[in-house]
Amino acid sequence: MTPYTIHPARITARRTETEGIYTFTMRLLDPSVRAAYRFQAGQFNMLYAFGIGEVAISIVSDPSEPEILEHTVRVAGRVTGVMADWKVGDVVGVRGPYGNGWPVDAARGRDVVIVTGGLGCAPVVGLINYIIRRRDEYGELHILHGVRTPNDLLYREKFDEWRRVPRTRVYLTTDQPDKSWHYRIGVVTELFDELNVAPSAIVMMCGPEVMMRFAAHALLQKGIGDDSIHLSMERRMECAVGLCGHCQYREHFVCKDGPVFTYRTVRRLFGVSGI
């Protein structure tokens, strides 16, 4: 068995989140592979569509039940386009888990700020679910989400649901509001004016790099340390074992050193284009 070995898994459930976004539940077929499989919140798998290819997709299910693997896939191109047709009963390929995951242990007992932007960020949904399932172990939960237009707001019901969780606040904003929009107007960083957190808070972010850069800047001004700000990076990945070279972010291999980095680690590189 090599690190490239693909393990067959059967789709046991399929849910349409919204047009072009689907959540698949899957179960590894080989009992010994399944029994040995463990993951941490924020890790990802390489999912394989027979004959088409393989892509990096985060695991959104809960690590306490490692036999159930849930992945939310947004149709983006060739491989994810084929995944849109996956049905219950289909056998697909899985290898993983890869990456370092979210710092959910370091976050325990602290206020947690989650910042996302752009088109719904699957890794963050898994993280929010993780914290909500262990609500007592964490402090205040702040979820900030910015979209360009109201149409980009995926999972509207999820945000409404999260609002009702104890000690949880949800902040939504858009640059280009329409009549249906009854949240805030402006870019995501304006949400930070409303945000009231202790400097001991921990931050986890996912989304476009410009957004994360502005957000990190605003959070630093609130006294949060650059090593308490964690961000999930996205780069091309073809192997996930630090070998194919595509995910390099200067000295970092995003697949194995990340995808989650502290702002301290990437700070100097973040503003430079073309890295």
Partner: peptide
């Protein structure tokens, strides 16, 4: 070639 993946009735078999 790293792997050979052969289709089998409802799934596939992987060989290094």
């Amino acid at each position: 070639i790293l792997l050979e993946v052969r289709r089998e009735h409802r799934g596939f078999k992987v060989r290094d």
